[in-house]
């Protein structure tokens, strides 16, 4: 796929994504260290995972500028994971 050799985001975007990913990881760790639980915390943690995954998919994987199908497939996997995990945790708390 030689037509794809110019898809990598510019350096500032890559750097910004790396910083945001690290910050989101530290927030996740902070929530874990507080021993917090419940639906709201689960939603926060899944939201952080979705946010981080989106940055990896769009910026690091370089799918921001590809055909929508590829973005939807990979991001769709991510959203599906979050929904399945949320459903399982809802069952366990009901």
């Amino acid at each position: 796929m030689s037509a794809n050799t110019k898809l990598t985001p510019a350096i500032p975007r890559l750097n910004r994504s790396a910083v945001l990913l690290a910050l989101a990881t530290l927030i996740t760790l902070g929530v874990g260290e507080q021993g917090l639980g419940g639906r709201a915390i689960m939603a926060l943690l899944l939201g952080l995972a979705l946010f981080k995954g989106r940055l990896i998919v769009l910026d690091f994987m370089g799918l921001r500028r590809t055909a929508p199908l590829w973005r939807r497939l990979v991001l769709g996997w991510l959203v599906l994971q979050a929904l399945v995990i949320a459903l399982a945790y809802r069952i366990s708390s009901s």
């Binding site: 796929m1 037509a3 794809n4 050799t5 110019k6 898809l7 990598t8 985001p9 510019a10 500032p12 975007r13 994987m61 370089g62 799918l63 500028r65 590809t66 055909a67 929508p68 590829w70």
Partner: peptide, 19 residues
């Protein structure tokens, strides 16, 4: 800020080999 290369239309395959 994007490089000029990123102004290409959103109709490309993903980077790397399809396999």
């Amino acid at each position: 800020m994007d490089t000029p290369a990123h102004t290409s239309p959103h109709n490309t395959a993903p980077p790397g080999d399809l396999a």
